[in-house]
Design a protein around this nucleic acid. Structure first.
Lengths: 196, 196
DNA sequence: CACATCTTGAACTGATTGGTTCAAGATAGG
DNA sequence: CCTATCTTGAACCAATCAGTTCAAGATGTG
C-alpha cells in the first residue's frame, strides 16, 4: 500500500498527543507512538519528526486547541465574570469527564517534568501556563475586579485549574473536582459582591 | 574500604528521595541513583532494594516526613483554624523556598504519573493524597466549619496545595505562590466570618 | 596476625531506547 | 501498461536500561 498518503495527519497527531498526554514524555517510546498512531516507525520520523519535535508539536497542538476553548469560555467576562470563570473551569471538567481522553493535562504534566525536559520543550510548557494566566488576568480585569484582585485571582484560578489535573489522575470523582472549583467560584462571587 | 557500613542509610535514602523528587520515577535510572547516593550499583540493590522497592521507600519516607509537618501545622485548628491552614500552606511554601530541595512535590509528581506506575506505587501515591484530605477534613471540622463546608474546603485546600507543586516547577515566584494560597485563605476567612 | 564481614568496582546479561537505512511493494498519473 | 512516487516492514546501530554476579580489597574483631 502506497502512492498516496495512507493516513490522516490530523488523526495521527491526535493519537500521538493522546499517547504523550496519558503516559508523559519520558514514559512514551517511539514504539508506543508507532502503536498509538498505527504508523510505521519510519513513517513517524519522515512525517512527524523525531520524538522531541513530535512532542513539541503535540504540546502546541494541545495548547492551541484548549486555549481556544478557554478563550471562548472567558469571552463573556465583561458582562458576567462569574459565569465566565465557571465556564473556564467547565472546559477542564468536561475534558476530564470525556472518557475518550486521558485524565490530567498535557501542559500540567509537562510543567511537572520541566527539570528533565529539553529547554525548548520546557519553554513551550512555561509559555502555555503563562498564556493561561494572561488570559485570566485580562478576563478578571474586564470583570469588576480591582487590578490587585485580578492578579491574585488569575494566579489562583490558573493554579486551581492545574490542580484538577493532579486530582483527576489520582482518581478524584467529578463531585470532588466540583468541590475544588466551588470554593474558588464562591470566593470570586464574594469578591464581586463586596465591590458592588 | 569495607568491614563496617561505609555509608549512612538515612543520608543515602534522602539522596535517593531527592533524586526521584527532582526527576521523577521514569527519568531516574539506577545509575542516577548510584551517582546521587554515592553508593555503588550493587550496594544499592543489596542495601536499598531494586528501583521499584526503593522508590516506594522514598515515597513513604517523603509522605511520613512532610505528613508530620502538616499534622503539626494543623494541630491548632480547633482554636484557630485560619492560622492552622496558613501554617499548612507554609509547610509547602517553605519546602519550595528551600534551595536544598527540588521544587514540586514527590506525591504530586507520582500522582501525575499514576497511569504508568506499578499498581503498588500508584496505590501509595493515592493513599498519601487521601491521607492529606483526611487530615484537612478533620482539622476543618475541628474548626468552626459545617460538615459540608469542611468537606469542600478539604478537597479545595488539598488541591491548591498540590497546585503549588506544578506552579513552582514552572518557575512561579514566591509572590505568585502566595497569591494562589491567599485567595483560599481569604475564602476560608470569609466562610468563618459568616458563621460567627 | 588472621579471620570473618562487608563494600566495592567491574563485568555481564538480555531487553529496550532513539534513530537511521533500504529493498520491496502498492498506488496514481501519464 | 509503465513509471515515478510514496509507504511499509524489517533490519540494523550504538547507547542505555534494570538487574545480577563475583573476585578483589578494606576493615574491625578476636
Amino acid at each position: 500500500m502506497a502512492g498516496k498518503k495512507q493516513f490522516d495527519m490530523e488523526t495521527a497527531l491526535d493519537a500521538a498527543m493522546i499517547q504523550f498526554w496519558r503516559a508523559g514524555y519520558a514514559d512514551t517510546s517511539v514504539d508506543d507512538l508507532s502503536r498509538a498512531t498505527g504508523l510505521n516507525r519510519s513513517s513517524i520520523y519522515s512525517s512527524l519528526g523525531d520524538k522531541d519535535t513530535l512532542f513539541l508539536r503535540c504540546l502546541d497542538r494541545y495548547a492551541a486547541r484548549y486555549g481556544e476553548k478557554y478563550d471562548a469560555a472567558l469571552s463573556c467576562a465583561a458582562s458576567d465574570l462569574l459565569t465566565a470563570v465557571r465556564a473556564f473551569f467547565d472546559v477542564t471538567l468536561e475534558r476530564i469527564a470525556d472518557p475518550e481522553l486521558p485524565d490530567g493535562c498535557l501542559v500540567a504534566q509537562s510543567a511537572m517534568a520541566i527539570p528533565v525536559l529539553s529547554p525548548s520543550v520546557a519553554a513551550h510548557a512555561k509559555e502555555a501556563l503563562g498564556f493561561q494566566r494572561l488570559r485570566l488576568r485580562a478576563a478578571l480585569k474586564a470583570g469588576r475586579l480591582t487590578d490587585q484582585d485580578a492578579e491574585a485571582f488569575a494566579e489562583h484560578v490558573a493554579a486551581v485549574n492545574q490542580s484538577l489535573a493532579i486530582m483527576s489522575r489520582a482518581g478524584a470523582s467529578p463531585a470532588q473536582l466540583l468541590a475544588i472549583v466551588g470554593v474558588t467560584v464562591d470566593a470570586l462571587s464574594q469578591a464581586l459582591r463586596t465591590r458592588e
